[in-house]
Design a protein around this nucleic acid. Sequence first.
DNA 1: ATACAAACCTGATAAATATCATATTTGCTG
DNA 2: CAGCAAATATGATATTTATCAGGTTTGTAT
Lengths: 238, 238
Amino acid sequence: MKPGLEASVPDCVHCSKRFSSVFCRAEVENLRVVNEHKVCSVYKKGQMIFNEGNYAFGLFCINAGKLKISRNGDDGREVILRLARPGDIIGYKALLTNDKYSASAVALDDCNVCFIPKDLFLKILKSDSSLSIELMRMLSAELGKVETKLTHLAQKPVRERLAETLLFIKETYGLEADGQTINAKLSREEIANIVGTATESAIRLLSEFRKDGIIELDGKSIRITNPDKLVRTANLQD
Amino acid sequence: MKPGLEASVPDCVHCSKRFSSVFCRAEVENLRVVNEHKVCSVYKKGQMIFNEGNYAFGLFCINAGKLKISRNGDDGREVILRLARPGDIIGYKALLTNDKYSASAVALDDCNVCFIPKDLFLKILKSDSSLSIELMRMLSAELGKVETKLTHLAQKPVRERLAETLLFIKETYGLEADGQTINAKLSREEIANIVGTATESAIRLLSEFRKDGIIELDGKSIRITNPDKLVRTANLQD
DNA sequence: ATACAAACCTGATAAATATCATATTTGCTG
DNA sequence: CAGCAAATATGATATTTATCAGGTTTGTAT
């Protein structure tokens, strides 16, 4: 695990992401302690924050940037389990179960990530019931999302899952100033690895979506020109 | 939600599943309070403990029996997300997120299930950090399992997933006295709904496993006659 | 015991998707 | 800006898996 350069970020109490993070209800005194002991780093696009199989020494909290949490399947092919954004914490699972990381975290663009040492975080967690409850809420929500993904992977065709994935990326990272372009640059392979399909299938279906007037493609930029049709294509019931 | 008959079960402090449950480190005083307020019921095979879409009024803790947690996909086909056994709690996700149930729980055989009212459980959870930490650990472990399932569903062929599923059912419910027969009676359709495949495919592959000398089939009984070969067929790396 | 529905099984076929092969384009690096 | 590797694109084909159709068995209620 090669840490990036040190970064200057506002202290935790005044962090712009505080109230949209798992720390939203944590005691202020605890945030002050976290602030004193946290170490923030810059990770360049493509850099690894933590790696599948390594031990967890602490919790990461994203201050800026986008990153993916992914796992390598037995045959070496990647599955992207989660996309994370500022305010999100990552690496909590290995921390809580005391296992090695079961997935890796890689920066999708330049990131500021704060590191909170394991012992400190666990100590605070034990004493701060508001933080605990919030973390449980987050874990439960996360579990719900993965279960929904599992259900769709088991039952829905690739076409619907790709449409759903585009909506998911849009929900996670939002749109650019034009109000149409998804604010994230992912390779076709990465998109395929979220959908759970072959790269060629993802490429082919994106072309179809383009021909159907649902999206426009320009390199890695995806403009959603017909959002309603995209939602209908995703065929979401729940 | 139609509750079953009232059941007589030992009190929580002396419950045989106490130390293999999420309550293993909970304060004894809290267990006493839970015990006073819990309501235990008998559910017959096939009965529903809670139903997708309903509100959660409390937590269920399994005292005896087996049950499945499943979700209905958009087309009505079932996906089995989890198999639960004595000592397990169910319905915690909806309780913590304040959402409706996103899945249903159905008894696979006759069950004793204890009900702990929502407010009581949440109150205890806030005050008992050992219980909180243990619940977070459980949620994290559950999340890890679902992520592994997701990875395999995305990347492994049905044959391998079926073999893995048989091993999973064995791990969950153990073997009968003969040391070979899986101690659970699931329909072929239910097995298929764990694997994430069509019922016919599951049936066909079970027949193949039988021809290959891996298992013997007798109605819903499955005897694992060649465990090593089953493990190899599952092709598990992690 | 008989009747009947549900579950199970098997074969034939169709559909979905992956894989392979091969251009073409893009983005980078010297 | 030339050269090159990586990413993207698309067609052809193979493979996997689902679906459909028709049997057989099993379990259960009368």
